[in-house]
Design a protein around this nucleic acid. Structure first.
Length: 424
DNA sequence: TCTGGGGTCCTAGGACCC
DNA sequence: TCTGGGGTCCTAGGACCC
């Protein structure tokens, strides 16, 4: 048996933990640029506020119902997530942290216990330790556990814990689950399946396997098997090393000058380098992209992107930044209104194995020396102690293109300054 | 006026190897 | 008339997840 523990309306719930006056008020959290709704409390959902809706389109509704609106505060959500996961890790032998607000637990060996009771115990413990409400689904496969979790969320009579074990329970759940609500079936596949009159999870489970393999490929075949109770997706106890690390932002306003793009790209490049060093890894490929708005009907969208390999794998901010600037020059087109830019590093290798990699062109491009490495270490240490941005490269500057974040709550659990300055 | 960010996996085709 | 089998790496694009 697998259990899927999923936090309810996670970001909205995080905002409530430190602000009890929000308990009965509808709450929404906005995306990075204060652009879209990315989390909603139950009350906000009841008002008809849709996931992903642009904030400006539902502004009257938000105002009318006195909805509490927040910018996204990832420092807070990340820290509370860690606390939830630590609590869960103490309640099950094996845990896979699947996302910021979800974890799979391996319930093998719990068969002789009362799973329902244990589910409620997990729920109470997480609530007590962190203040975050969760729902739990349990079933013989991960995909079915997802379905069980969904039922637990939608139907109050489960009291937050839904267990699918017998064939009859599973079949009934499959019949109640629409095709687009299955984990791994997105918009495109739903469309294809609906055209074939495959409308529920039960229909997909019963569809001809050869057809599914042909049109939904290996991924769809796995989903079908999982719906039939054949487990294909094991618990992944160790998170595999990242294959790519990216930093990108939409701008607070249109950006037209190369200079401002350079500042933005420099900032993203430096952020990627910090993330690399944090994971003790080096990158060998670098991608830079800049884009105009996809919502501008008058101008065709420009998406300039370029990927290049770095002379030798590195996590040095200066080396990555310099390479990124050269690439930016080659994709920049004057006279356009840019709304977004980003930097992506890939071809990631662990630092330890790569120390002594030689470059064929070593004479021309010297590898970062020990001095550079030390400078990076010192920068990271200072920023860790005094807060991000305490020291940075001169090319980084976020003044002009900075995303809007007007409604940020305090970083209650990670910054003393924020608690001291807390507004009443 | 205003529309997120950070990831993964899979397929297909080309080019190449022995 | 007829032309193998088993691979790798790379890129681009599609689809999905939270």
């Amino acid at each position: 048996m697998f259990a899927l523990v999923d936090c309810n309306n996670f970001y909205a719930s995080c905002e409530r933990v430190f602000n009890p006056s929000l308990r009965l008020r509808p709450v929404v959290v906005l995306s990075n640029n204060d652009g879209c709704i990315i989390a909603r409390s139950e009350e906000a959902k009841a008002l008809g506020i849709q996931m992903g809706m642009p904030e400006f389109k539902c502004r009257p509704l938000l105002k009318q119902h006195d909805v509490a609106v927040f910018s996204s505060n990832f420092a807070l959500y990340g820290d509370l997530s860690t606390r939830v996961m630590m609590t869960l890790a103490a309640l099950a032998p094996e845990i896979e942290v699947y996302s910021i607000d979800e974890a799979f637990l391996d319930m093998t060996g719990f068969a002789r216990f009362d799973l329902q009771e244990y589910g409620w115990h997990i729920r109470r413990t997480v609530r007590l330790n962190t203040g975050i409400p969760v729902c739990i689904g349990m079933a013989p496969t991960k995909t079915l556990a997802k379905i069980a979790n969904r039922l637990a969320k939608k139907n109050p009579h489960y009291q937050g814990v839904c267990i699918l074990r017998s064939h009859a329970e599973i079949q009934a759940a499959l019949e109640r689950t629409r095709i687009e609500d299955i984990w791994g079936i997105g918009r495109q596949l739903s469309k294809l399946l609906l055209e074939k009159q495959i409308e529920s999870a039960a229909d997909l489970a019963a569809a001809p396997a050869a057809w599914v393999r042909k049109h939904l490929h290996i991924v769809g075949a796995r989903i079908q098997a999982e719906l039939q109770g054949k487990s294909c997706l094991p618990i992944e106890l160790v998170r595999p090393a990242k294959q790519s690390i990216g930093t990108s932002r939409s701008f607070g306003r249109s950006v037209t000058s190369l200079e401002e793009l350079q500042q933005a790209v420099a900032t993203f490049a430096a952020k990627c380098a910090v993330k690399l060093r944090h994971g003790n890894s080096l990158a060998s490929l670098l991608t830079v992209f800049i884009a105009t708005s996809p919502f501008d009907d008058l101008c065709e969208r420009y998406w300039g992107t370029r990927t290049a390999s770095l002379p030798c794998p590195t996590s040095d901010s200066v080396a990555i930044l310099k390479a990124a600037q050269t690439m930016l020059d080659s994709i920049f087109r004057a006279g356009k209104s840019y709304k977004k830019a980003g930097v992506l590093v890939s071809g990631i290798v662990p630092q330890a194995t790569c120390r002594k990699t030689l470059s064929l062109f070593a004479a021309e491009v010297p590898a970062p020396n020990e001095r550079d490495t030390k400078i990076m270490q010192v920068m990271d240490a200072i920023n860790h102690r005094y807060g991000n941005g305490a020291v940075r490269l001169a090319a980084e500057n976020s003044e002009s293109w900075k995303p809007h974040q007007k409604r940020l709550s305090a970083r209650y659990t990670t910054r003393w300054d924020d608690i001291i300055e807390v507004k009443v």
